[in-house]
Structures are given as C-alpha cells and as structure tokens.
Design a protein around this nucleic acid. Sequence first.
DNA 1: GTCCAGGTCGCGC
DNA 2: GCGCGACATGGA
Length: 298
Amino acid sequence: MVCYDTPLVTYGLIRLQTPPGFRLSGVATAHGWHALAPYRWDAETGTLHRIEELPGGVTHLQITQPDTILVRADRTLTSADAREAERRLRWSLRLEEDLSEFHALCASDQALCEAVRPSGGRLLRCPTLFEDVIKVVLTTNTTWTQTKAMAARLVATLGAHAPGDPSLRAFPPPEAVAVAGEIVLKEQIRLGYRNTSVLRIAEDVAEGKLDLEALKDSDLPTPELRKRLLALPGVGPYATATLLMILGRYDELGIDTELRSHVSRKYFNGEAVSEKDMRAVYEHWGQWRYLAYWFDPQ
DNA sequence: GTCCAGGTCGCGC
DNA sequence: GCGCGACATGGA
C-alpha cells in the first residue's frame, strides 16, 4: 500500500490526500465558480484547470482525480512552489472542511441526499478571499454571461502570465488592480458601476488598510464577520451571505431573485413570497441553511 | 429604443 | 427602519 505524505512532488506533479468520498467533479461543478477565469472545467476529461502565480512563476495547474487528487504543472516546481500550490488548492477544494453534521442531517431526506452526494456539499472557492470578494461583486445585478465576461476581461487584461504565453494568466492580485486604475477598468475591463467598488477594495488591500485574507480561518463570531464583509463597497446583504458561505459559515441565506423564485415555485405554488417566507422554509437547518437551500431539489 | 439581469447605495420620509 | 430611483454594461 502506498502512503502519500503530503506533498509528494515529482517534477511538476503533486498528489493531495482527500477526505473519504471526495469527488473532484462534484466539487468543481457544485456552483458556477469553475466557469470564471482563471478556473476552467473540462467535463470531457474531468480536469479542473487553474492558472496560479506561484513563487517560481505563473503555472498552469491541471487537477484530476484518477484515485487521489493529482495536480500536474506545466513546469518543474520547486518545493516552495509545490507547498504553495497545495496550500491554495486545499483551501479552494475545501479539503479540510468537516461537513459530517450536515451529511447526517441530510440523511432523512433522500432527494436532498442525492443532490448533495456528488460534491459532498463542498462548494469550490478561490485561493484568496480577495478573488472571491471581487467575483461575488461581479455577480450582482447582472447576468451570468456578463459575470463570466467581466472575470475573463479582468484576468486577460491584468493577470500575470508566463514569459511567451500571454494566453494563460493568473487572477490579478490587489496591487495589479490598484495600479491599473479607473481608466483601464472603465475602458478595458468594463465592470460597469462595479468599477468603483472593485478599485476601492483592491486599493485598500494593496495599501494594507484591509486584510481580507485574515478573515479566512478566523475565529471571529459570524455576526462580526458579517459586519466586516457588509462594510465592503459593493457588498450588500446578498453578497455578504455568499461570502459567508465561501468562508464556511452557512447559517445565512443569500436573499436574491433565485432564492425567491425557488421558494415560490417549490413551496408556495408559484405565488409571491416574502423574505420572511423564504427564511421560514430553511429556518430549521440552523447553521446549515445556505447548503440546505443550495442543494434543495426543484 | 426599452427592459432588465442571482443588488447596492444614498436619499427622503 | 422602509420605500424608491439611479446606477454601467450588454444581450434579448
């Protein structure tokens, strides 16, 4: 029997140990994030593509799951690169997250159980909270098609690339967005009125006034975390709930048009529903409300 | 041309 | 606290 101490690195290859029952295909596609650059999901081969700027340079990572999670890089990785790639991917794939209590609660509902099974309830996230915050802002008051286009332009315009290959670019760090400034955002990246919020968040992080990464794995009580997210420009109640989900806090529902129509259709015969109605439906799921809604079958 | 999309913000009451 | 319109962008 082969036992992999993590990370086991050979040239450009990393293996990640996974929790029992982990399915990459389910986790990658459980929500839309896999379609936002610099992620790309290839359903044919079951490969999650991701471009990351590692200490040693911009790297194309191809993540598959023949048995354990296998990460192939398009270049030889130093051990520092491999450690960093592993750290980012373990966070993104939520390999440390314990959802066993949610699974136990799902057991009583077979349809829900089946909806949860492919991903185990793990929703893909980005290596940095900065990237997730920007992407959540890009989902507000627009269509999914435009969200994808905005993320693609942000990466294509400002993302770092390996020498000689500008087609593969990483997500721009806050400094790159801050330096780009409002003209580039307005004329090239075209985030609409979100330009202002995105630029301000990037500037605040770049200047050290805002430490988003410290909110990951912080033991702040959820109400305090909520307050800090809500304070970000362009981040209202819906975006806050989504970001709390990103951070592994599932007790708050993101109230938006999708939730409204789902609850109306499934529980109220298509009639108009109030915010109170929506909350009541998932109330008994306590700290698992977001996941209970997310995987709630039609 | 008009409407609106997985909202947010600032205003007036 | 609550209701209302404006807000950039691009597709229907």
